[in-house]
Design a protein around this nucleic acid. Structure first.
Length: 472
RNA sequence: GUGGCUAUGGUGUAAUGGUAACACAGAGGUUUGUGGUACCUUUGUCACGGGUUCGAUUCCCGUUAGUCACCCCA
């Protein structure tokens, strides 16, 4: 023992000396700066603020957050989707080309900025365009088709924040590229539906078809013809939209506009036979999968690249808040070609993690959340006295190496304080190592529910621990 | 981007033109061998800046942030 102690002490001494040297070295001037900084710090500390529209995800919600992502990940890979990661920063032009000028996402919500050499960049507002870009750039059309990928990460839109809408938000999404079958659409909806369902969110799918570009051209002519006759009844916004992005008039929530829209020609009636058949197939498959959906003829979505199937996910209840679309997606058969690749059919969806999280927490009370967020502790390790503390380090490491997780707080010295923690964290058992046990080579195992304690040999901790974990 | 509302400790809430009360949570303790009870101590320049006032957390203005509706979407 004595031999062990000495070198340890020496090295500690050395470190201290060095630290002192570093600390005393700065003299008057630096000190002034520091104290000025202190005053500044005092002022700014009160002012600590997140950048607008950004937010922290902290425990216990962080645990739920991770669970959402893990859940999504495991479902996606069960369906054969593989992970893809693309940069958060992209060329501005990528989204202008794909998402489209005239869409709100591009026109007013871009988190755009200039590089040092004046290159026009932006933080990605969504991931589909990036995935399509990666597909083209890396020649993924040479892989066995379809290419199925999933992604997860932050997206940015410079919009005015409110509940459920942040400037930095996170999406989980899946994309299937290189397959034009309507089964693909159904499968994607199914994946999203399942992963929401698994999190306890009863979801309903709003679905529509906007056909091909040609279908739409015809329909838009028809629609604007109709709208022109009702122009007087439309709101100002819609009048603007008529020329800019006619389809979006269908989305308007204004009551007057609604009454006009109800009478408007429906896009479904203007689809080609082929497009209609495609859509019917998708719906048949959804029926087969027993996924509840509502045909929503006014659903058009705000990104230009969509063709054929478009859909959004809503919680089954709660109509009141408007920021409650949990996710959405659709088919985008023309996007890859638009970005310079071969003509490649594709479809995808994305889920808003913040929306999912808030939908989940709305449905669980705080106590449940706290429990859900707490680390699951089966065994707590308590120690008493310096010798026991030292021995604990060794024993805990040994357990951990064996895959047995024990919670502890070796910084505490009173047994009482440690028992309180064990209790607070819902430990079912506590291992107690005191002076006496160190000497005897034993340890106390306490059942926290019954209060029954047994003294066991330190060598048998692992066996006992494993037995406990198995019976959990 | 447009309009409305709000801003008190970690959280949820009080009161007041003379510097703040309560509950819960956190930390420490009630003589370092035992938890779920009890008690004590402790945790705030009342978002920031300016104005009115002898005096402002309280009234007014601005900023910032949040929130609701719109816009749009995740």
């Amino acid at each position: 023992m004595a031999v062990k102690k000495e070198p340890a002490k020496k090295s500690v001494g050395k470190i201290n000396k060095n630290q002192i040297k570093v600390k005393t070295a700065p003299k008057k001037e630096v000190r002034k700066e520091i104290s000025a900084d202190d005053e500044q710090a005092k002022k700014t500390a009160a002012n600590l603020n997140l950048v607008r529209g950004m937010r922290d995800i902290i425990p216990p919600q962080g645990e739920i957050w991770r669970r959402i992502v893990r859940n999504a990940e495991s479902i996606a890979s069960a369906y054969g989707f593989q992970y893809i990661e693309t940069p958060i920063v992209e060329a501005l032009s990528l989204f202008v080309r794909s998402v489209g000028r005239g869409t709100d996402v591009v026109d007013k919500e871009m988190y755009a900025f200039e590089d040092r050499d004046g290159g026009k960049l932006c933080l990605r507002p969504e991931a589909t365009a990036s995935v399509a870009r990666a597909y083209v750039m890396h020649g993924l059309q040479t892989l066995p088709q379809p290419v199925k990928v999933w992604y997860e990460g932050p997206m940015f839109r410079y919009d005015r924040p409110q509940a459920g809408r942040y400037r930095e938000f996170h999406q989980f999404g899946c994309e299937t590229l290189g397959d034009k079958s309507p089964v693909v659409d159904a499968e994607l909806i199914c994946v999203a539906y399942n992963l929401l369902n698994d999190l306890g969110l009863k979801t309903i799918v709003h679905i529509n078809s906007i056909g091909t570009a040609e279908d739409r051209e015809q329909y838009v002519v028809e629609l604007s013809g109709y709208l022109r006759t009702k122009r007087a009844y439309l709101c100002e916004e819609c009048k603007k939209r008529m020329s800019k992005n006619t389809l979006r008039v269908l989305d308007c929530k204004n009551e007057q506009c609604r009454s006009v829209i109800v009478e408007a020609p429906q896009i479904i009636d203007w689809l080609s036979e082929e497009s209609k058949n495609f859509f019917m197939k998708v719906l048949e498959y959804l029926d087969e999968l027993a996924i509840p959906y509502v045909l929503t003829s006014t659903l058009v979505r705000g990104l230009d690249y969509y063709t054929h199937t478009v859909f959004e996910f809503y919680p089954e209840d709660a109509e009141e808040k408007s920021q409650n679309a949990l996710g959405g997606g659709g088919r985008y058969d023309a996007l890859v070609e638009l970005l310079g690749g071969q003509s490649t059919p594709a479809a995808g969806f994305s889920i808003g993690l913040e929306r999912v999280l808030s939908a989940m927490t709305e449905r669980t009370d705080k106590k449940e959340m706290a429990v859900a967020g707490k680390p699951k502790v089966a065994i707590f390790f308590a120690q008493l006295g310096e010798q026991a503390r030292r021995r604990s380090l060794f024993l805990i490491e040994e357990l951990r190496r064996d895959g047995i997780v024990v919670q502890h707080n070796l910084a505490k010295s009173s047994l009482k304080a440690q028992m309180e923690i064990a209790n607070r964290d819902n430990a079912t058992h506590t291992l107690i190592l005191g002076q006496k046990e160190v000497q005897d080579g034993t340890i106390i195992l306490r059942n926290m529910e019954s209060g029954i304690q047994e003294i066991i040999d330190q060598k048998k901790i692992r066996q006992n621990a494993r037995r406990l974990l198995e019976t959990q």
